[in-house]
Write a protein that binds this DNA or RNA. Structure first.
Lengths: 334, 334
DNA sequence: AACGACGGATGAATCGTTTCAGGTCAGGAC
DNA sequence: GTCCTGACCTGAAACGATTCATCCGTCGTT
């Protein structure tokens, strides 16, 4: 029932080798054979079986993308960028979402290894360097996304979070804020600790006396942001910071919502807020949100491109691509 | 270099058949062999080659998901639901985004057919019934997502958009609004026309005299919503509607933003707004947005479950699963 | 006429699994 | 001692593509 390359060969009156050649290097086949084979393919509705191809040539036509947080529009944009570039090469994306769960992360890496994917894009959660090393030994390269490769063993595409944190804090300081609360967590996430580090650099290198307080959250979500906002509002007013720097826009939106709904704190007059990512909803928020824009589509596209280069040249030296975020000033920092 | 099942067999001192049995039906193998094989696997770091497995048994361990609009949080949630269910079965998701482009849609269906995926989830854009029929003939079932199967030839999981449209309009009418503008488009999208149809039903079955005006957009995006809002504000004030029903939350957020930023129209006092989807950002908007919540995760999960059932029983009768949306009232409709 | 070169076509071998028809062996029934 | 029954294993065939050593004609050269 399922038609194979042999059926095509028979109908076209040529050998299977010729059919394969028509499919893969038509220039080495006579024009006559090409048309006959194409006609046969058309007539039978033949579609090449990629599993057989992959088994023989040993290389798959898909790449895996392990995403940290499928809810986050930032990652969706990154995936979009990668998917866009992949489709140009006839490559499909195997999508795995870990939701910050090491077990799921490992599970997807296993799955992708079984599939012998061409390569893996990953925004890592746990310590997966050993896993990635192992994949590489097996000829599956990996590119880290939204994460700088600490030891330089892998290529990575990320945004300079330290610089971004610094830009955010400098902006707040310049606007006259002196008591900044950094809202974010968990701090095992490199992006989170980097953004805080950047903010601290800004505070220390300022001529003014600037305090940085840390309000820890357990995740980068709207809910956690709102909860943090609630906690803040319960303090006596004199203990309030005059600015909030949220580790990402989801948190910032949650914070904003808590402050606006309570009507107890004016944004930005009493408390300014700045986020990170500039996700598509930041500009549409209660008070349009200042943020640091990441070139998310470009990140995905670039990561996929590097991955493909590494698959064709396994000896390539890993390279770290770092983009600078862009400060977007809106009403929330007035 | 790459280790195969044969290497494992040799090291464990058994035949390849036994290794395969250990992997696939351990209960039929002696305990002794099982442990020896496992030890060998461990030692060699063997990972089964899924392409070879797939070639032999003829069934892949991935399903394709063709998504209409990767930017839309609603679809991301649906994907999440599907992915969650899939991971339970050791199945990976091949992710394809069409961005409402028939060419891309066809491209992904081709790609998935080459991969001989287990099945396809799709939120269709163009008229792809013939393509899906063809896939089915080849043993690849498809489940329509967020779209009712017109001719009942395929299973589908969707939300009753007519009912939702009706609920939205009834809510506005009940709140005293009489001049409702429906903002949405293109109308080829079934969801859009259904939501409008529902609103018309509500208007006609009301005891009051209710006008429904249509403001067409070219896409369901924040930008289109904002643009529609601008156009609206340019009219003389006496021609303004007193309520806007947006075909989805992205549009609604855009509308809201246009009205709020201009400060010319009070929401909801002068103009009420209701959206559709209840995406995670609707509640965090300038004026928290009323909306119709779709059980997006559940939709994805259900669709995948049905797909798997159909792969195991190809004679199953297609079934249409329809969820009812839930009215979420927030400040934007006072 | 002999020879070499070359464009094309051929088909067997191969990739790494799963499956299945048989084979081996120990133990139980008679 | 013979036969039967299971439990367990074995190894070759098969899946559908790609590749490559060969072969076949034709044509140009000498």
């Amino acid at each position: 029932m399922p038609t194979s390359i042999r059926d095509v060969a028979k109908l076209a009156g040529v050998s299977v080798g010729t059919v394969s050649n028509v499919l893969n290097r038509p220039q080495e086949v006579s024009a006559d054979s090409v048309t006959r084979v194409h006609r046969a393919i058309e007539q039978l509705g033949y579609v090449r079986n990629d599993a057989a191809r992959q088994l023989r040539v040993g290389v798959s036509s898909s790449v895996g993308f392990v995403v940290l947080d499928g809810q986050n529009p930032f990652f969706n944009d990154v995936v979009r960028g990668a998917e866009d570039e992949a489709s140009r090469h006839g490559i499909a994306i195997l999508y795995g979402n870990t939701d910050e769960d090491s077990a799921r992360e490992g599970m997807y890496l296993d799955l992708f290894e079984e599939q012998r994917v061409r390569g893996v894009l990953i925004s890592p959660y746990g310590d997966i360097n050993p896993r990635l090393e192992r994949l590489r030994e097996r000829g599956i390269p990996a590119v880290l996304v939204d994460r700088f490769s600490g030891n330089g063993r892998f290529s990575s595409v990320s945004v300079d979070s330290v610089a971004g944190g610094r830009m955010a804090a400098e902006h707040l300081i310049e606007r006259g804020r002196r008591r900044i609360a950094f809202v974010g967590g968990p701090f095992e996430m490199r992006q989170v600790s980097d953004r805080l580090a950047g903010a601290r650099v800004a505070a220390e290198s300022s001529t003014e006396r600037v305090e940085i307080e840390v309000i820890a959250t357990t995740a980068l979500t709207v809910e956690e942001g709102a909860a943090a906002g609630q906690r803040l509002l319960q303090r006596p007013r004199r203990d309030w910071p005059d600015a909030l720097f949220a580790a990402n826009d989801l948190l910032a939106l949650g914070l904003l919502q808590a402050l606006v709904v309570s009507r107890r704190a004016l944004v930005p007059d009493e408390i300014a807020i700045i986020g990170f990512d500039d996700n598509p909803f930041a500009g549409a928020a209660a008070v349009p949100l200042s943020s640091l824009r990441q070139p998310s589509r470009t990140i995905g596209r670039t990561a996929l491109r590097i991955l493909l280069e590494e698959t064709s040249d396994p000896t390539a030296i890993p390279r770290q691509t770092v983009f600078l975020p862009e400060l977007i000033v809106r009403a929330s920092t007035g």
